[in-house]
Write a protein that binds this DNA or RNA. Structure first.
Lengths: 149, 149
DNA sequence: TATTGTTATACTCTATAACTATA
DNA sequence: TATAGTTATAGAGTATAACAATA
């Protein structure tokens, strides 16, 4: 569905810019699909996998909700599932008894490690670049994402 | 401090690689958020906006389902909404009366043009690069996404 | 028999609001 | 009064399966 530009009705857009945007979206989509496949292989839904990835250190449920950009009520169900799978424990905070700290179990740590290998080491496409090229790519992306003055 | 190593469970990953992947995901997420905001401003849901973007040329509903990587039954409801908004028409195929061709109305074309401006011209971050830098970025991304030899 | 699109149904993801138990 | 987490509920988004019309 990417035929020639409809000049009569379409706006004039820079084809180079279109390619840039499409390349970034394509790469991101490949990475996301790769992560979702890894999640399935571990019996996790994609949101559960993101939660596990976010638990590099113990954190209150509120913090995880912030990290996932979702409501705290949603985290309850997410963590219920991870607890049933034996990947996460809820631990009380001795200083504030309202708070529950989410802590990965050893099994949870292993799953997280494997998800990170899939997301980072087995990252699709990026591994095709040499280290030098990858550094050039990082430099350009950093500059692009830098807040404008 | 001679206790057991507290983070001994984590695998060691290349921090540079992690940064590369995070940068790509961040940039893609900014672009997606920008598109979703544009969709909202036009009274469209994000999937509806993606459908409009996919209709650069008239196409059967099955083709749109392929383009959106979703089931054809889902396209029915999506297009129902766009038809109610006056952005899309269903037109019969004279050669095969099972097929309905989806055609953007003039209003639909205008919405598509504006979505494309938001997605491509107003692309967040990429506009911070010079044309030369953007070409370097494209070259690297193209090489990364190229199927491995 | 196979395919296009629709309908009916159900499941996942996520939000809002009301509730509890703390603080 | 305000906050952390839970529960109940509702609404998108999407899939599967059965179906109708057509090929």
């Amino acid at each position: 569905m990417s035929g020639p530009e409809q000049v009569a009705t379409g706006v004039q857009l820079d084809p180079d810019r279109i390619e840039t945007v499409e390349l970034i979206l394509d790469l991101s989509q490949a990475m996301t699909a790769n992560l979702c496949a890894a999640a399935r292989e571990h019996g996790l839904t994609p949101p559960q996998a993101r939660a596990v990835l976010g638990l590099g250190a113990p954190a209150p449920m509120r913090d995880l909700a912030n990290h996932l950009s979702c409501d705290k009520s949603h985290v309850t169900g997410l963590v219920d599932g991870l607890e049933r799978l034996g990947l996460v424990d809820r631990q009380p905070d001795p200083r504030d008894r309202r708070v529950r700290h989410l802590v990965l179990t050893p099994a949870g740590q292993r799953v997280r490690d494997q998800l990170r290998v899939r997301l980072y080491v087995d990252a699709p496409a990026v591994g095709n670049l040499t280290p030098t090229e990858e550094e050039q790519l990082r430099a350009l992306l950093r500059r692009a994402l830098q807040p404008t003055d």
